[in-house]
């Protein structure tokens, strides 16, 4: 590597993204599989059967193969051949038009809602970091889990109990519709859109990854217990766990605000996280 002259080829990113998208759509991750194997309630058999067939035949775990969201951490020394979203869109287009996935993106959200036919565009959030590294994370979330997203602009004088009440109240009412057990992502602070973005970033973390600040780690652990006490259960039928993990991300905020955002991922938690080195 020549310092300050790292070039990452578009082809390399494209190939890796394609491979990771196929993997996330067809092969369930280990923590999800392990939990599913423990589940004994209604539909337990078909849940495991689905994981087996999908992997064996390269078929999607869920018919809703998502609108793909990317979160990119781009080192300031990295040079690229083209804008990343262009590379991502090529990868998504090629995979979603060649694999038996569903193209679920409509071009205009309000007028016409005509399907774009190739599952593009993608959503891409870019974060600049120091160094020569490129880290790509993505979520493949279906519409059912996305519709549960919520933003609460709380009073700055609110406390942790007020926050829990909002989160638990929302999940109690709507949680079963997002295909539990859930991964619950919570973004606290920043501005409204920052909080939502943090809640999504939280979903890119592994289940066992805890916040390194003790107060937030305790909040994650307490909320997980309290969400599981809601007894949403597999398939929303009250049996088995309700949430795998609660991941909290926070950011400083304005004296007058306390934005709190909630995002959830469904029980399949289809996602990816990998780094790309320069050639």
């Amino acid at each position: 590597m020549n310092n300050g002259d790292a070039m990452i080829k578009a082809e390399k990113i494209y190939t890796l993204v394609k491979k990771e998208l196929v993997k996330a759509n067809t092969i369930v991750n280990e923590p999800v599989r392990k939990e599913a194997e423990k589940y004994k309630g209604p539909f337990a058999e078909i849940i495991l059967e689905n994981m087996k067939i999908a992997q064996r035949e390269g078929l999607p775990l869920c018919q809703d193969t998502g609108m793909v969201e990317f979160f990119v951490f781009l080192g300031h020394e990295v040079r690229l051949e083209e804008p990343l979203c262009k590379t991502f869109e090529r990868a998504v287009r090629d995979i979603y038009t060649s694999q038996p996935y569903r193209c679920s993106v409509v071009a205009d959200p309000l007028f016409g809602r005509k399907n774009t036919g190739d599952n593009t565009p993608v959503i891409c959030h870019l974060f600049m970091i120091e160094g020569a590294q490129l880290e790509i994370r993505f979520l493949i979330k279906g519409g059912g889990s996305e519709n549960l997203s919520a933003l609460f602009m709380m009073r700055p004088s609110s406390n942790v109990e007020d926050l829990k009440e909002k989160i638990l109240g929302h999940l109690k009412t709507f949680g079963v519709n997002a295909c539990p057990p859930l991964h619950v992502g919570i973004g606290i602070g920043g501005t409204s859109e920052e909080a939502l973005l943090l809640s999504k970033l939280a979903l890119t973390k592994d289940f066992e990854e805890r916040n390194h600040i003790e107060a937030y780690r305790i909040l994650e652990e307490e909320l997980l217990k309290e969400i599981n006490a809601l007894k949403l259960g597999y398939q929303g039928l009250g049996n088995g766990m309700s949430a795998y993990s609660v991941s909290v991300e926070y950011y400083p905020t304005h004296i007058a605000t306390l934005p709190v955002a909630l995002s959830v991922d469904c029980y399949l938690c289809r996602k990816g996280r990998f780094t790309v080195e320069d050639s």
Partner: peptide, 30 residues
């Protein structure tokens, strides 16, 4: 899949209709 609005119970009675759920996230097996 999932819960419905309260009024769906009334509609079910009125029209003698049933609401089933089937397993979500198992689309290849289904």
């Amino acid at each position: 899949k999932g819960k419905r609005n309260e009024y769906v119970k009334e509609l079910s009675k009125k029209y003698s209709a049933v609401y089933f759920i089937t397993s979500s996230g198992t689309a290849t097996a289904l």
